[in-house]
């Protein structure tokens, strides 16, 4: 049961990184992809209806950690205290910027909102990788490499998403941005992912990490061949597999010296949570998918 809940939490984090990954990428790339107010609206319009729902994957992951592994939740958050402060500050800046930019005056006020979106997106995308890198290896290099990995993957993923969801000049620039981002993302990902399977029983980890690298490479090739939908599927798969490798490396001790079994809630709590999760999660996935279907059209400049 504890292993099952570890997998559930890994799944929630995976959903978060895959979905918010492109939200962060889109936010980070805003000044590079858009020229002028109309294009800025176009770029941010790609994530407008969905980013808030995507963020709830994080709220759920953290909430599930609290309920299923209280010591993991509290140790994780209090160990990385200042980093977590910056994460929530980044999420505040980004969230307020995204929600308010359509309701403020143009010029300085809109620019401030955009600055919040860019800063928040870059900061949080970097921090998650840095936090997990530090958690696994505890070195400064791992922290920076982890941050670079999560930020570059998010940027690539976001660029591919924009190229999939827009038309015109923005779409062309997004493709270029994706190709440029992959020049950074590929080496960093190869270095970072191959560091993950360092344990003894690491064959499955090598397979997942290898598959993540392969999906990433495939994504880049598909961007090159202008198969945007497939490219997005590939980068999404790469992030999902990279997250799976991360949690594979964290298992069975997601905090140094503390195993999931030691940190888990009692069987009663885990059982009721399982039933509720089994009912709720498929529904969440269904109606969030429906959202993407409703807003499936490419955005033109308006």
């Amino acid at each position: 049961m504890t292993t099952f809940w570890f997998i559930v939490i890994a799944f929630l984090w995976t959903g978060y990184f895959v979905l918010e990954g492109f939200d962060f990428g889109v936010g980070a790339l805003l000044p590079l992809l858009a020229r002028g107010p109309a294009e800025r609206r176009q770029v941010l319009g790609t994530i407008g209806p969905v980013w808030d729902g995507n963020e709830v994957w994080l709220i759920s992951a953290i909430g599930a950690m609290f309920a299923a592994f209280p010591a993991w939740y509290s140790g994780f958050l209090s160990e990385f205290y200042l980093a977590m402060v910056l994460v929530v500050v980044g999420l505040i800046l980004r969230g307020v910027g995204l929600e308010w930019r359509g309701k403020v005056r143009s010029g300085t006020e809109a620019a401030l909102c955009d600055a919040g979106v860019v800063t928040g997106s870059v900061l949080v995308a970097f921090l998650w990788g840095a936090i997990f890198g530090n958690l696994l290896f505890g070195t400064g290099l791992a922290t920076v490499l982890g941050g670079a990995l999560s930020l570059s993957l998010a940027v690539l993923h976001g660029a591919v998403f924009v190229s999939l969801k827009t038309e015109g000049a923005v779409r062309a620039r997004a493709r270029l941005a994706a190709l440029l981002a992959s020049a950074g993302a590929l080496p960093v990902a190869i270095a970072g992912l191959s560091a993950l399977p360092s344990g003894a029983d690491s064959v499955p980890l090598w397979v997942t990490a290898g598959a993540a690298m392969a999906a990433l490479a495939a994504g880049v090739a598909l961007v090159w061949r202008r198969r945007e939908g497939w490219a997005f599927a590939a980068t999404a798969t790469a992030i999902a597999l990279a997250t799976a490798s991360l949690f594979g490396a964290l298992y069975p001790a997601p905090l140094p010296g503390l195993t999931v079994a030691e940190m888990a809630s009692a069987p009663y709590t885990l059982t009721v949570l399982t039933w509720i999760g089994l009912v709720a999660l498929p529904g969440v996935i269904a109606y969030q998918s429906w959202t993407y279907w409703v807003f499936r059209k490419r955005l033109t400049r308006v």
């Binding site: 709830v56 759920s60 953290i62 909430g63 599930a64 609290f66 809630s265």
Partner: peptide, 19 residues
């Protein structure tokens, strides 16, 4: 101390309400 009990409504809040 409380996670086993207190965490459950928080997780439910995210899964059933915030989404």
């Amino acid at each position: 101390f409380v996670g086993d009990v207190f965490g459950a409504p928080l997780a439910l809040e995210a899964l059933l309400a915030f989404f």
